[in-house]
């Protein structure tokens, strides 16, 4: 089980879009290392042929009819928005393009 370094935590924070301060990084990195260490046991428990469980109960094929139903009004949709302009969500300038 690889260790988790302060740099790793900083990288993960970037992936997760959290601006961790230096103090937070100092605090968090060793805590995460301890937690990871304690859950390390898991990697040896299950054999290759054990199927993974992603859903607690084995349901399949739950579908909806293709029928349009009313949703929210624009007013409701925008009611929680930090900023609104022209009936749209106003967001700070976007760097980079769509994926």
């Amino acid at each position: 089980m690889p260790d988790i370094s302060r740099d790793d935590v900083a990288h993960l924070a970037t992936l997760a879009r959290i601006d961790l301060s230096d103090a937070e990084l100092d605090h968090l990195a060793p805590q995460l290392a301890v937690i990871l260490d304690s859950i390390a046991s898991i990697s040896e428990v299950a054999a290759e042929d054990v199927p993974p469980t992603s859903h607690a109960l084995p349901l399949t094929n739950v579908f909806r009819e293709d029928v349009a139903t009313p949703g929210l009004t624009a007013e409701q949709a925008l009611s929680g928005a930090p900023e609104v302009e022209e009936q749209r969500f106003s967001v700070p300038r976007i760097l980079g393009e769509e994926q």
Binding site: M1, I39, I42, S43, V45, A46, V50, P51, P52, T53, S54
Partner: peptide, 15 residues
């Protein structure tokens, strides 16, 4: 695979 994937397998064992 080492973490999430493995955890899902252990989940099967717990069931």
């Amino acid at each position: 695979d080492a973490y999430y994937g493995q955890a899902q397998k252990v989940r099967t064992l717990i069931s």
